[in-house]
Structures are given as C-alpha cells and as structure tokens.
Amino acid sequence: MPATTAATVVLTARALLLDMDGTLVDSGPAVERVWRAWAAKQGLDGDRVLEVVHGRQGFASMAILLPDRPMEVNHAENAEMLARETADTEGVVPIGGAPALLASLTGLPHALVTSADDALARARMGAAGLPVPAVAVTAEHVTRSKPDPEGFLLGAELLGIDPRECIVFEDSEAGTRAGLAAGMRVIGVGPATTAYGATVTVTDLTQIQVSTNDSGTLTVTITP
C-alpha cells in the first residue's frame, strides 16, 4: 500500500504498541551525531552505520558492524553510547500527529516498545513534549533486540492482550519485522515501511484517528 493511502483504511484491535524513535519522536539529528562519531572512531562508513543502527539496540548493531569483536565489549560500549544519546536531545521533536495520538490513547490499552533504555526513552519523550505511557518496554526488559519479537510480545503480555489483537506502530525495518514476527499487524510510519512489509503505511501520525466502544475494541482509522 502506498505511503499516502488512496482510500480510508479501518483496523480494529484491543491494544496499540508504539515504537519511539522515528515513530513518535524525530531524534534523527541526535542519533546521527552520536553514531557518526562512533563510526569515525571505529573507521567505519557513517552511512552504513546509520543504516544498521536504526531500530536496533546498540550492542546488536555493533555485533553486525564489528562481527569479530567480543560481545562483552559491545555491551560495555553500548552503555556508553546510551549515556551520550541521553545527554544529547538537541533537535528532538515529535513526529507529526504524535501529541494528538497519545492524547487520544489516554485510558486505552497501549504501550511504548523501544530499543532505548528507560533513561534515553524518558529524555527523548520529554524533549519532544510527549508523555511516557504507563506501560513501557525498554532495553532493560528484554534480552534480544528487534527484529526479535520479544519486546512486542512482552508489551502485549503486560497489557493482558492476545498478540493477535495488537497493532504495532513502527518506522524501521527491524521493528516492522519484529511486529510481524509477533503475529501483529504493523502500521508503518514513513514510506520506506511499505518495502518492509508493513500492513498499512502512513506518512505520519496525522493520518491516524483512534476511537473505542463499550466492549473495549479500538478502531484505528487511517485516512489518505
């Protein structure tokens, strides 16, 4: 389906699971500053590094980019990278439609599912002026990074909702693959997600409206 749908699409669910970077928050400039500096230090191409890190936890990205390096080194360096990213929130802003979407979800089953740790998630959501959902699955809560479905399955479990009744909002290939692997439908944010296999693709969150009924069913309306 194209980035801007030709007709209104309606999906129903019992819960929504929301990625953060690139989905709710535009943190691109901050991510680029930190990871290009890391790439230069490692003698790696910055563009290649940015392609790999999107949607993944840092240690998993490092394992792809530096396959011969011990994982304990990756985990240690990932902690340093998270601290640098947490301290750098310049230019972090909400994705279009994110404030209204989160406001509409007040009191409804939803969760944040992000590869960031808790400190980074709160720093970026705060910088963008967005509330952190009551249920938040961050890096501390999982042992495997996206594209593994662990984070989304945990989000569904914490909400008490069957994974098949959840809709994921994602922008990255790793995240889209994780949502689909969890047996969930995926609303892709950004035109690239069409190629990743997203169920429906939108330009941004201004195309999304969420309502509910007395039975607790969420209706997600996607407009052109």
Results as ranks from 00 to 15, higher is better:
190 G>I: 08
70 P>S: 11
200 V>D: 08
100 A>W: 01
55 G>I: 07
155 G>D: 03
11 L>M: 13
208 I>D: 02
104 S>Y: 03
96 G>T: 15
21 D>N: 13
92 V>S: 06
59 F>R: 14
55 G>F: 06
135 V>E: 00
21 D>S: 09
18 L>W: 14
59 F>I: 00
118 D>H: 10
163 P>A: 00
88 D>H: 13
48 R>K: 08
30 A>I: 09
33 R>G: 05
181 A>T: 07
150 E>F: 09
7 A>N: 15
14 R>H: 13
168 V>W: 13
78 N>H: 14
15 A>P: 09
224 P>R: 15
206 T>Y: 09
186 V>S: 07
56 R>W: 03
95 I>R: 06
19 D>A: 04
216 G>C: 11
5 T>E: 06
151 G>Q: 03
153 L>I: 07
156 A>W: 06
220 V>A: 08
127 A>E: 09
1 M>K: 01
70 P>E: 09
207 Q>I: 03
171 D>A: 08
27 S>V: 01
74 N>G: 01
221 T>Y: 14
29 P>C: 09
13 A>Q: 09
94 P>L: 07
16 L>Q: 06
130 L>S: 02
16 L>K: 05
97 G>E: 04
178 A>N: 04
83 A>Y: 02
195 A>H: 12
31 V>D: 01
9 V>A: 13
207 Q>M: 13
127 A>K: 11
32 E>P: 00
114 T>W: 13
190 G>H: 13
143 T>A: 15
102 L>C: 02
15 A>G: 07
162 D>H: 10
136 A>F: 02
164 R>I: 00
181 A>S: 12
138 T>A: 00
72 E>A: 13
148 D>P: 02
174 A>N: 09
76 A>E: 15
185 R>A: 07
18 L>N: 06
162 D>A: 15
179 G>Y: 08
217 T>D: 14
187 I>H: 02
166 C>K: 08
127 A>G: 03
28 G>I: 09
121 A>M: 06
208 I>E: 02
56 R>G: 04
216 G>Y: 13
116 A>F: 05
69 R>L: 11
154 L>I: 11
118 D>F: 00
175 G>C: 06
94 P>S: 06
170 E>S: 08
214 D>C: 09
82 L>E: 15
222 I>N: 12
182 A>Y: 11
29 P>Y: 10
43 G>Q: 05
111 A>N: 04
89 T>G: 03
121 A>S: 07
118 D>L: 14
119 A>P: 01
178 A>R: 07
185 R>G: 08
191 P>N: 06
161 I>T: 14
206 T>E: 14
193 T>N: 05
91 G>C: 12
137 V>I: 14
210 V>I: 10
140 E>M: 01
17 L>T: 00
182 A>I: 08
129 G>C: 06
213 N>P: 14
122 R>Q: 14
196 Y>I: 10
12 T>G: 05
66 L>C: 08
156 A>T: 03
179 G>S: 09
106 T>Q: 05
12 T>K: 10
100 A>T: 10
31 V>W: 13
195 A>D: 14
60 A>T: 12
48 R>S: 05
71 M>W: 12
91 G>Y: 13
137 V>C: 00
211 S>P: 11
172 S>I: 10
45 D>N: 08
202 V>W: 07
55 G>R: 03
179 G>H: 10
31 V>T: 06
